[in-house]
Amino acid sequence: MNTDQKALQELLFQLADDDFILAYRGSEWLGLAPHIEEDVAFSSMSQDTMGHAVMFYEMLEELGAGTADDLAQLRKPQDFRNAVLVERPNGTGHYMEQPNYDWAYAVARTYLYELFKWVRLEALMSSSYQPLVQISRKMMTELRYHLMHWQTWTKHLAGGGQESRDRLQAAIAQVCQDIEGLFSFGPHADAIVAAGLIADASTLKARWLEKASDALAKNGLALPDAFPAPSHDGRAGEHTEQLADVLNTLSEVYRLDPAAAW
């Protein structure tokens, strides 16, 4: 594999794994959201996000990286390229037992991630890799609804009284602990940018900062002044223990017999 091919695959894994793992976290909320109507709406967005991950895995499949199902379910944690932010648990407990989930964190994480995703897709619209240009346009269509939806939640939690506002602001601070990890392209960053696949990380970060600050300022909220260096660089395959748990769950059935038709 030459440098450009390697760079392309690395970027595709980042795109696919971010969406895949966040969609998994979203699916853990199924049946547990604060309001029944919201439960239904949130699930649609988790499905959209997992659908986007599938589109990226299928692009990798076409490049000969392996089948989409194998890529999603049989790689080891250190082969995953998602940012650590998306693998963070929804709270303490397990989705089947004592899920002490934090809705403020769900709103803050999903909204700030999806704003980043918007910026990243916008940048991919001028990618040198044509299939990424086309796919980005499609995904942005669905993302518009997500952003409207999370903006509404941000507004309502921000304006929902002191407790709610404090919880949301705390969740934003918690998300921002991991935010730098989104703006890493990992060890192959130079090759990714040199191949013209996407704008460089600092450009993405500047655009995201502008968007996220505006979105929060509208609701009297703010981002922290500085973001700590990430505890793990997910793009380099560094992950928390939680990712291993997530992957074990995701592949529990498939691993019984990956050769079987399911």
Partner: peptide, 29 residues
Amino acid sequence: EKEWVPKAPTLRRKLAIMAKVQDEMGHGQ
């Protein structure tokens, strides 16, 4: 059924069962 949503054995099955459980919540609504 939700217990099996993340564990569904293929990407297509994961999406399908998520949509199915979502429908159940929708029917409840």
